[in-house]
């Protein structure tokens, strides 16, 4: 038996590639199924502004510029889309014309990933610890407090919490900045003032996302660990006189597996799920651009953002699939 289940990992990667292509095809099809196109909107605006003094050929020019001219068969469009994609060419943004979509994503994505990964990781660890405590001390005072808090936080709308945080800590408390990812005048790069400023600006958004996602982990962990505590193997380990920490470790380890699956899902989904937090805290992540893209019918940018979300979800899944294969020996067997 090897430490790494190679066969299982290869199988997961093959599935990853297949799903990725499926998602790319959908991503390609969706804008083309919608009525109208951004070139027509720009053209009509110009037409109205200029009082009808614009040639129809300008529309075709715009369409060609945006890569949405319909004079080629759909499968050729698909292949040129794929070809562009693998050369890193995601088209030109319409809202930020003529900035390439890849440039926007290159600037925005790291901020979103930073926000998402740090807050989800923090809430995953704190949530699982709290859930473990609650599940192992079921019906004690601590459990009841944790449960109430978790249910409250899980039901609390993220945008309300974001506004509250902003109001209390920034507007009135003046403890944290109201927006941005780092202070004006700080040079981007690996220097202490930049890192400090980045962390300082991230406190409120990270705290908001952490708090709103915490409840799910706590309740999930608690619900997983309770049946585990009553399981036959916990009973037997107590019969063998195992120490308390050993017994708890067995219960926790078995209860952690379902939550790990949830972890991958939330990493992926959160890339699109923090839109509200990003716009409230004016954080320059993908979510903020997504709102602009929707407002301006910026298809290339939307497509690019969707692509990022797809990649995030799939990579998240792949990582956790592999992790589960290592942590839960039963999974890799059925994959062989």
């Amino acid at each position: 038996m090897t430490a790494l289940p190679i066969k299982y990992i290869i199988k997961r990667i093959v599935i990853f590639i297949a799903v990725f292509f499926g998602a790319l095809t959908l991503n390609f099809m969706l804008p083309r199924l919608m009525p109208g196109n951004p070139a027509e909107i720009v053209y009509e605006d110009l037409l109205r502004d200029s009082g009808g003094d614009i040639n129809i050929s300008f529309l075709h020019q715009l369409e060609a510029e945006y890569g949405i001219s319909n004079n080629k068969p759909i499968w050729i469009q698909f292949f040129s889309y794929l070809n562009d994609l693998f050369h890193g060419n995601l088209g030109i943004s319409i809202a930020f014309f003529p900035v390439p979509v890849s440039t926007i994503l290159y600037e925005a994505l790291p901020w979103t990933l930073f926000l998402v990964i740090s807050s989800i990781t923090i809430s995953f660890f704190i949530g699982n610890r709290l859930g473990r405590y609650a599940g192992l001390n079921r019906n004690h005072a601590g459990d009841l407090i944790i449960d109430l808090f978790s249910m409250f936080m899980a039901a609390f709308p993220a945008f309300v919490l974001a506004f509250l945080m902003l109001d209390i800590f920034s507007v009135y408390g003046k403890l944290f900045p109201v927006g941005g990812a780092f202070a004006v005048g700080v040079n981007m790069g690996l220097n202490v003032p930049f890192i400090v400023s980045t962390l300082y600006h991230a406190v409120l958004p990270v705290a908001t996302i952490t708090l709103t996602s915490l409840g799910g982990w706590v309740l999930g962990m608690r619900n997983n660990i309770i049946p585990n505590v009553n399981s036959d193997y916990i009973g037997f380990s107590q019969n063998l006189g195992l120490k308390d920490y050993q017994v708890k470790r067995i219960a926790y380890r078995n209860a952690l597996l379902p939550n790990l699956t949830g972890f991958s899902m939330s990493i992926g989904l959160s890339v699109s799920g923090v839109i509200i937090e990003e716009s409230i805290f004016s954080y320059p992540g993908v979510g903020m651009y997504m709102i602009t893209a929707i407002d301006d019918l910026d298809y290339p940018l939307l497509q690019g953002i969707f692509l990022m979300v797809i990649i995030a979800v799939l990579v998240g899944n792949l990582i956790v699939d592999i992790l589960l294969g290592i942590l839960d020996p039963r999974i890799k067997q059925e994959g062989d």
Binding site: S231, D232, Y233, G235, F236, S237, N239, I250, R253, N254, L257, L327, D328, P329, R330
Partner: peptide, 11 residues
Amino acid sequence: PQAAMNALNPV
């Protein structure tokens, strides 16, 4: 115990 078959830690 009874049902000793499930008495081992699966992971």
